[in-house]
Each structure stands twice: as structure tokens, then as C-alpha cells.
Measured scan of single mutants.
Amino acid sequence: MATGGRRGAAAAPLLVAVAALLLGAAGHLYPGEVCPGMDIRNNLTRLHELENCSVIEGHLQILLMFKTRPEDFRDLSFPKLIMITDYLLLFRVYGLESLKDLFPNLTVIRGSRLFFNYALVIFEMVHLKELGLYNLMNITRGSVRIEKNNELCYLATIDWSRILDSVEDNYIVLNKDDNEECGDICPGTAKGKTNCPATVINGQFVERCWTHSHCQKVCPTICKSHGCTAEGLCCHSECLGNCSQPDDPTKCVACRNFYLDGRCVETCPPPYYHFQDWRCVNFSFCQDLHHKCKNSRRQGCHQYVIHNNKCIPECPSGYTMNSSNLLCTPCLGPCPKVCHLLEGEKTIDSVTSAQELRGCTVINGSLIINIRGGNNLAAELEANLGLIEEISGYLKIRRSYALVSLSFFRKLRLIRGETLEIGNYSFYALDNQNLRQLWDWSKHNLTITQGKLFFHYNPKLCLSEIHKMEEVSGTKGRQERNDIALKTNGDQASCENELLKFSYIRTSFDKI
């Protein structure tokens, strides 16, 4: 039985969820670079991206490699990797027998973001014989899940209580170790020597080791999670996991709180800001991140802002960003909400898709409305799209047979046209069989910064309504002859009103 693990408890099935942008060198404390989270699957090609990484700022997932063999891993080693800020997950990587050479110096898994409450997941690794993470000293947050690894031993010899604050939620089941077939031998045991430290858990006094050649490092209890030197002297209180010299914040392997210019500090002093819960960055760093993602459509890219001495992905609820200094300031009234469309555009074809934009005031991208039916549609669209004030790209209304009016965009005031449909149009209306009105132009103002209007096959939309939009939106004169079809717009509506004058002759039985 794995020490510190839980057996036999019912657990939810383990679901495996399925960018080499360097964020800056980590400095003297770390020998390499800070790398983003990685999802490495199918083959070993991307694994080489770990070569210079000291910190993975995010998670590391290595999974679904069915053609790899043990010899493929023999020359692979990433000794610079010290810390993973989120979680480490391995799933069905064939041929991998140990992690001792792959990650010989991995010391800390912070667990800032977890995989279903777990910071370390080893699942269905069919050839893994031992973990071998002999320098792993601290899992700051989260638990361990090690399950269905039929060859995995050296679990009962690990004292997880020396690595985690609590072992109650560890789930370590259905491994070879369960069948008591392992016969784990710690260093020196074969020669009758006791080389590794022994600890007591559940009444068992057991030597602690990761492999037959690597003991588990056990520091004096007084050192807590700070770690200790090879001689057993406690590291500085700002260290986490390990250090090369005692009581020196510049000799830590990793930091308990924050890293700044080669030393570990309790908090980031001005003019620095907390970033990702582990390091200090200056304003320029946060500003660069903001600008890199301002026009990016890459998933996970955030326009970072500053709030409460932190550089964070977005302002919290009730705050909006001051564009001059990136500071989050309290909103006066309802907060603006910028919604970034991942692929640059979004099609609204149902109430469900409209709900995804609920509360958005600025759309960074283009909207395509293609709704053919739905219950209580006008009210639903207004509830979900009615706060949109600005669209950076274009607005396209296409084959939306259920629409009679666009009044559900009740606050839309600006279409920038930074991206144009077919390279020309910022407003595009095609084949809307029941569209009769755009907006009530006596109450609604709309500016279209650039781009043209396109109207074709809107049989109940009168040309007068379209011409009014040209005047109000500032697009009059931009359109070419064929942009607004004269014969297919309003051709099934009563669009022309003329005053009919009647004269009559009164007659009676005795007068003409």
C-alpha cells in the first residue's frame, strides 16, 4: 500500500482533458527560462521544448504516446526543470519506465491550478516501474492521483506527508504495488545497510526511497516546507523545498512566496507586481503582455491589467481597466465587458449561442446573426445582446428569417469595421425574408467608422429604411451602385405612401 494514499474509496472516473512563447529569463536562482504550460502528445517531438525550461508557468501534460519505446527515452533528460506552477499529468506514455532521468531536479509542483483537485496525476502508464522524482520536495496545493499503472512499484516507500501538507485526498490505487509483488529495495538494503531515512506512518517504520538508488530526502521537522541542505541544516524561511546553503534567500532552489532578481522575498516591493503567484514583474512586463494579447485571437491570451499590486489576466467583477495605466478602477454604474472572439468572429444561430455573449459591452471581433427560429426570440436576444455598444469588426445579418427588427441591439452605437466582410463591408444584410426595420432612427444613433453597407434580398425592408441608415451611420456616399439592390429590397412591402385627393359631386333626387 502506498504510504499516505487512500484505498478502496469510491472515486469519480478520471477524465483526461485534452506555445513556446518565453516569458522571460528567471535569473540567477533558476538555471534556465520560464516556459508556458505545455500539452505534449502523440510523439516526442515537442518534448524537446523543455530543454531550457527551469519553470513551467502553467501545467505540463505528457500523454497518448503509443509508439514510443524505452530506448526512445534513454537520452532524454531535462535537468534544468525545477518547478511547475500548476500540475504534472502523465497518461498512456508507452515505453517510459521512470522519471528519474527525465526530470531529475523537479523540486516543486505548486498546484496553482489543479487537474480535478490533483497536482500530480500518473494514470495508465503501462510501462512505468517507478516514479523516480527523487528531488520532489513540495506539492504546495492539491493532491496526488496514481492509478492503474500495472508495473509501478516504489510507492509504499514514499512518505507523501513530507511532500504535501495533507495526504487525506491522495488516491493511489490499482498499481502493481497493490499486489505486494514489488519487493522494493532501498539503497544499501541488499548489503544489509540502512542508507535512507525511515519514518513512521500508520504504525509502520519504513525506509523512504524513490528507487533502488535514490533515497527520499527527509528534512528535520523544524525546517517545515522550506527544505534543508545535504547536511540537514534548514533553508531560509522564504525558500521552498530545498537550498544549497542554509538561511540564505539567494540560495533557495525555489521560493515559498515570490522570486525577485535572484532572491526569494515575502512580497513584491514597489515598483514590482505579483505575477502568477510566484514571481515579481515590473510595469513594462505587464504592459507588454497586455499589448501582445490586445489584437491576438490565441486562446488563453489575456490583456493583463494591474489590481491590488498584482498583474492579473482581467479586472475583477465591479472594476474596469483604465487604459492609460492598466489599473483596475471601480465602475460607475454597470461595468464594461470586452469579449474577445477566439477566431475573430462568432455566429449567433440560437439563443444558446447568444447567451455566451451575455453582459458583453464591447465585441472584439465580428458578429454573424443567422437565426431561423426560436421561442420568445426578441426578448431572449435583447437579454443577451442588448448591452453590446461596440463591435470592432463587422455585423452580418444573414438568412435570419425569424427577425423582424434589429432593435434587440438596443445599445449598439459603434461598428468600427477594423475587419470587413469580403474585404469591403462593415454591415452586411443578406436574404432576411421578414426583416422590416433596422432601428427606430428617431431614437437610435449608430456610427460606422469604416467599410460599406450591403443589402440584398431583404424583400420587406424598404429602401427608405436603408437610406436612413446611410445618413445616420455616416456611410452615405461610400456605397457603390450594386451594394444596395434596388429590386430585391422592399419588393414585397408597401414602401411608397402617396396622399390621394378626392373630389365629389353631391346629387339628390331633384338636383344634379
Rank of each mutant, 00 (worst) to 15 (best):
Q276P: 03
S225Y: 06
T329C: 05
N150M: 03
H302S: 11
C182I: 04
C328H: 01
F275S: 03
Y304A: 07
L60H: 00
V200L: 06
G203A: 14
C53E: 00
P270F: 06
C219E: 02
Q287L: 04
C335L: 04
T107R: 01
I122G: 01
L60I: 07
L136A: 01
G241D: 02
N309E: 12
S244M: 15
P246R: 06
P336T: 09
L289M: 11
R279K: 04
L88A: 01
P336Y: 09
S323N: 02
L260P: 02
G227C: 10
V108N: 10
I312L: 07
E33T: 07
T140M: 06
T85F: 03
Y87S: 01
N195E: 07
T85M: 09
H290Q: 14
N325I: 03
F205T: 12
F73S: 03
R113W: 13
T329L: 09
F78R: 02
Q287P: 07
L128K: 00
F283E: 12
P104L: 01
G183S: 04
G203R: 11
T189H: 05
C264P: 00
N150H: 06
V108R: 06
C186Y: 03
N138A: 13
H274T: 15
Q245F: 11
R41Q: 06
V121C: 15
S324P: 15
H307K: 11
P334D: 12
E51I: 13
P313D: 13
S324A: 08
D261V: 09
V55Y: 09
I158H: 05
L64Y: 03
I185A: 15
H290C: 01
L131G: 01
N295A: 09
I109E: 00
T68R: 12
R298K: 08
N309M: 08
G300D: 11
F73L: 13
Y259P: 01
L76K: 09
T68W: 14
L63F: 04
M65I: 06
S237T: 09
V144E: 00
Y171R: 00
H28S: 07
E314H: 03
N138Y: 06
Y319C: 15
H290S: 11
G132Y: 01
K80H: 14
E238C: 03
P269T: 13
L102R: 01
V305Q: 06
C280A: 00
L128N: 01
S237L: 11
D39N: 11
K129F: 14
F275L: 07
R110L: 08
N325R: 08
P104N: 01
L99K: 00
R162V: 09
L89M: 15
C215R: 12
C215N: 11
R298I: 08
Q61T: 08
V173E: 12
E57W: 05
C223F: 01
Y154R: 07
N105H: 05
P70S: 08
G192Q: 07
C186Q: 02
E130W: 06
I158M: 07
C328S: 01
P31F: 09
I40W: 01
R256A: 10
T107E: 05
T250Y: 08
W210M: 01
R113C: 09
H302I: 10
V206K: 13
F285Y: 03
L260Q: 01
K100G: 07
Q276W: 03
Y319L: 03
N179H: 09
P187R: 06
Q204F: 10
C35Y: 00
C153E: 02
P270T: 05
A119H: 00
H290T: 09
N325E: 14
R162N: 09
E130C: 03
E231L: 05
T157Y: 07
G262S: 06
I82A: 11
N295G: 14
P316D: 13
G227R: 04
I306W: 15
Y304E: 03
D277S: 12
H214I: 07
Q303N: 11
N179K: 13
C335E: 06
P334N: 05
D177P: 11
T140Q: 07
Y30C: 12
V305R: 10
C182M: 05
L90I: 08
Q303E: 10
C328N: 00
C239R: 00
F115I: 03
W278L: 09
G241F: 02
A119Y: 00
R256E: 07
F275P: 01
S112W: 14
H302N: 14
N52P: 11
P187H: 13
W278M: 02
C234Q: 01
D159G: 10
C234T: 01
V93T: 09
C239W: 00
L44D: 07
Y273I: 02
S166V: 07
L128S: 01
H307M: 06
D101L: 15
W210R: 05
S296K: 08
G111F: 01
Y87D: 00
I109V: 11
S166Y: 14
L260W: 05
L289P: 02
D159Q: 09
F66R: 01
E180M: 08
Y154A: 14
L114N: 05
Y134R: 04
P31Q: 01
F285L: 13
F91L: 07
N179F: 12
S323C: 06
V200Q: 09
T329Y: 10
I56P: 00
G183W: 05
L332N: 03
D169G: 05
K294W: 10
A198N: 14
E57G: 04
R145K: 02
F78L: 10
S143C: 10
L326Q: 07
N179V: 14
G132A: 10
